Simulated scan of single mutants.
Amino acid sequence: MRSHLQTAVPFPETVNMPPETALPPFHPEHLLNMTDTTGIIQHALRITPNRKEGYCTDDNSRALLLTAMAWQHGRYPEALKLMSVYLSFIHYMQMDDGYFHNFMRYDKQIIFDGSSEDAYGRTMMALGYLVEHGPSPQLIRTAEDIFLKAAPHLDGLISLRGIANSLIGVCSFARSHASGTQLINSIVHMADKLVHEYNRYTDDSWCWFEEVLTYDNAIIPLALLHAFEITRQDAYLHIAEEAISFLESKVFHDDILYPVGNNGWCSKGGTTALFDQQPLDAMAMVLFYQQALHVTDDQQYLYKMKQSWQWFMGANALGLPLYDEQTGGCADGLQADRVNENQGAESTLSFWISYFAVAKYYTDK
């Protein structure tokens, strides 16, 4: 272990769960409110869909992932209906070469902006999950077709988050198929890219994949956990655990999650911005701990997963919930003095994806 980890916030020797807010029932009203026959609209004016901002593949991919998780957990009929809408949007946004446009105006005109590796990666993650856990052979085969058409772009990815999300998707795809050489090679190739960047930037005081902590941080070590599950290469597990310990030293204070603020981020040698905190980051922490618990069976990860989940429910810097039990939506962020009133797609989807990640650990108690 790197020397800085000796001063990171440790897990308690005996795991005592923090006071827990009861798991609310699944409440898809705001998801339904934000979704029309085309897809889910990006942004909201408080709880009103902001049609002027249109749609994006990023959010429709997250929405597809959520519906697959919701169906897997509870066979919710709303999830099955929405799943077809989001999958259809992704199919429409796929280019002839397999890549994906990211933005569409409300009048259904695609914005040609060069697209985004992040959007590509999140789409591959959602498609891979649907292939692994889909509710019907027809939906699974459609997801497979879109996934395989996009797959030739995997090896050329540069963005760390594009690589990480894609890697998670490929691992999901591999779990549902006989692990052929090509799939395993893609997994190792992408995982090794992340390892290379980790070794490039890491020293005794900084254990991370780049020189700054920004958004969606935990998704990067999460990808290595998925790669470890498939390949059983211990280096992937070791780096994932070392990196998350470093991240914890920056974002956990007195057992409360403080996601890195977007007003300055956290640069190597600098301070960590406290605000604004974003739901996407809490979701990434929840998903990391869920997978870490799965591959290691270390119950201390359950403790951290529930801590991260409780950020949405009020165990945060301001002691205020971001989840709105009236609408089923989630605030767009935690600001220095208040909760952001807007309940956009990304934040609401982040909440519900986190919800289904932790749900079994509440219902099994």
Rank of each mutant, 00 (worst) to 15 (best):
V339H: 07
T272N: 11
R46H: 07
H153D: 09
I187M: 09
Y106I: 08
Q233H: 09
I168P: 06
M305P: 13
D192M: 10
F356G: 01
L213K: 05
T35C: 09
G270P: 00
P10T: 00
R105I: 03
T214M: 04
A227M: 04
K268H: 13
L154K: 10
F356E: 01
K108E: 11
H30W: 12
A357W: 07
A273G: 13
F246M: 12
E53P: 00
M95D: 06
G39Q: 02
T202K: 11
G98Y: 07
P28S: 12
A331D: 05
L280S: 02
L318W: 08
M69K: 08
P18R: 03
A178S: 11
E197T: 00
Y289W: 13
A284E: 08
P19Y: 09
P28D: 13
P137D: 14
V260I: 15
V9P: 09
E13S: 06
D113Y: 02
E229N: 12
S159C: 11
E241S: 05
I146F: 04
G344I: 01
H30F: 01
A292P: 10
F252A: 04
D192G: 12
Q335E: 14
Y201G: 10
F275D: 06
E241A: 03
K108Q: 13
D107Q: 05
G270L: 09
G98M: 11
L45C: 02
L318M: 12
H153R: 06
W311A: 06
